[in-house]
């Protein structure tokens, strides 16, 4: 979100003219998103396409953004304008497993601090950090819409709910 978006994002981005390449299947998938909107409104597909870039490239990187700008026939800055607004887009690389723990009220009062403390001490990192081997990133995020099964977290796109220390241990063992 903008308020949480440091104006220095532009300083963090390494600009390059390099252009990402994608397999024909991925290009086809991108076209299927664009087909949902009127032809002159293809920019509407930008957010879904940024998710494709993030999945394929691991994060929103400059070559990926260059590709999208060309693909949608918009400016590179148009793509950055949108990409920097939304909290789900990673503007720097994250670990292979992105653990996002919900920190908003219902999760908070149902045990989020213990869960976060446990995960962080087990992985030896703080919220917002990535393990040295690049395997895990832990983030604290705002409400994920699963308050009835608090505390909860999301790893990638998967919801993990009604968390207990034992459950979290099992999950981390599975990912290891």
């Amino acid at each position: 979100m903008a308020a949480a978006t440091p104006t220095s994002y532009t300083d963090q981005i390494e600009y390059t003219n390099e252009m990402a390449e994608f397999s024909p299947e991925v290009v086809e998938e991108m076209r299927s998103h664009v087909a949902k909107y009127p032809p002159e409104r293809s920019r509407s597909a930008l957010i879904p396409l940024l998710f494709v870039i993030q999945r394929e490239r691991g994060w929103i990187d400059n070559p990926g953004v260059n590709y999208l700008a060309k693909f949608l026939n918009i400016e590179v800055t148009d793509v950055w304008e949108t990409a920097t607004f939304y909290s789900m887009f990673n503007l720097k690389p994250v670990g292979r497993h992105h653990i996002q723990i919900c920190k908003t009220l219902s999760c908070k009062i149902m045990g989020e601090p213990e869960i976060t403390g446990h995960i962080c001490s087990k992985l030896g990192i703080k919220p917002g950090e990535t393990t040295a081997d690049g395997k895990y990133t832990v983030s604290l995020v705002e409400c994920l819409g699963s308050c009835g099964t608090a505390p909860m977290m999301q790893i990638g796109f998967d919801f993990h709910e009604d968390l207990t220390i034992e459950k979290v241990d099992g999950m981390l063992d599975e990912l290891a």
Partner: peptide, 27 residues
């Protein structure tokens, strides 16, 4: 009817922000 996705912005629940987002802009 088509599905479309946002990317983590509470403000997009406000209907006009949602429309900005659906057009590919900041919410």
């Amino acid at each position: 009817i088509h599905t479309h996705t946002g990317a983590g912005a509470y403000i997009c629940g406000e209907e006009t922000a949602l429309l900005s987002s659906l057009e590919g802009f900041r919410g």
